[in-house]
């Protein structure tokens, strides 16, 4: 019995001691549920569309999609690389410097590449240049960024903007996603009056009509049974006159469907709609679609 009780007691003491030290419960890594801030935003603020006009020119947003930079290169010596960079200038996102001098500097650059001889001729505007020209051919072996910068101070504009000309993007940059860049700002709904029924009010109208509508059940080709009605209301929510059927259908059941829709509109009056927007819902068109009951 002796060895047993000794070994057992010792072992248990060991395990318990280890447990006291190591049984530190680390908290589960469940992040505390964060209180979700809830704002009550009127749906109309989001849904009301601005009026779009056809007269404004469509703002074609410049797509900073990367051109395939490597291809248009006429496979020149490595010095020719910087020549490509100014070509990208029009797409650069930086504020555009006055274009003509930039183009000319580009020409000058190319000139320098092709003919190392100082040619003072091409730029009659820049008078003080010739004295500086001679040293440039010697630097030609250097990186071409430096010539641009040395020549820039002789321009009429400040060098910081010249530096902005340079396309600093890497030639290997990926194509920008097209969805991102072609955002059109001039589009609007043709009926995009600021004062119009918001989606929630249309929903309310729908709900009221839907409560009364018995769609033609079991009719085939439900897509041919779409009924569009023009409804005119009085300010108290009743109908001014009978709803007017706006479309004709070929289906033999179309008459039944149209009748049911008109019946529904008639049965549900008066409608409760915001009186302040009477001008908007005075005259509305409602689409009755048996597939999804109907759309406003």
């Amino acid at each position: 019995m002796r060895p047993g009780i000794t070994i057992s007691g010792f072992g248990h003491a060991l395990v318990l001691g280890w447990g006291l030290v190591a049984f530190a419960v680390q908290p589960l890594n469940a992040p505390p549920t964060e209180a979700m801030p809830v704002d009550l935003v009127p749906l109309s603020e989001l849904i009301q569309l601005k009026a779009g006009t056809l007269k404004t020119t469509k703002l074609e947003e410049k797509k900073p999609v990367a051109e395939k930079v490597a291809e248009p290169k006429p496979a020149p010596a490595p010095e020719a690389k910087p020549v490509d960079k100014p070509e990208l200038k029009p797409t650069a996102a930086v504020p555009p410097p006055p274009p003509p001098p930039a183009d000319k500097s580009l020409e000058r650059l190319i000139d320098k590449m092709v003919t190392p001889e100082p040619t003072p001729a091409p730029n009659p505007v820049r008078v003080p240049e010739p004295p500086k020209r001679p040293p440039i051919p010697k630097q030609q072996v250097q990186k071409l960024d430096t010539p641009t910068e040395t020549r820039a101070p002789q321009r009429t504009f400040d060098p910081g903007r010249v530096a902005a000309l340079l396309d600093r993007r890497t030639p290997q940059r990926p194509h920008a996603a097209a969805e991102e860049t072609s955002r059109q700002t001039t589009l609007g709904a043709p009926t995009g009056l600021d004062q119009r029924l918001s989606q929630s009010e249309i929903d309310a109208l729908r709900a009221q009509i839907q409560a009364c509508w018995n769609p033609p059940v079991g009719a085939e080709e439900a897509e041919k049974l779409i009924v569009r009605l023009r409804i005119q209301f009085k300010p108290d929510g009743t109908l001014t006159r009978e709803p007017e059927l706006l479309n004709r259908g070929t289906s033999p059941y179309f008459t039944v469907a149209a009748e049911s829709a008109m019946r529904a509109v008639r049965r549900c009056q008066p409608y409760t709609l915001p009186a302040a927007k009477y001008e908007v819902w005075k005259d509305v068109e409602v689409t009755f679609d048996p597939r999804d009951m109907f759309r406003g």
């Binding site: 019995m1 060895p3 047993g4 009780i5 070994i7 057992s8 007691g9 072992g11 248990h12 318990l16």
Partner: peptide
């Protein structure tokens, strides 16, 4: 239960021997 465990293991060891 801890004492029982100690005892059990004591018996186990003794019997093993």
């Amino acid at each position: 239960l801890t004492l029982a465990s100690v005892w059990v293991w004591a018996i186990v060891i003794d019997k093993w021997i």
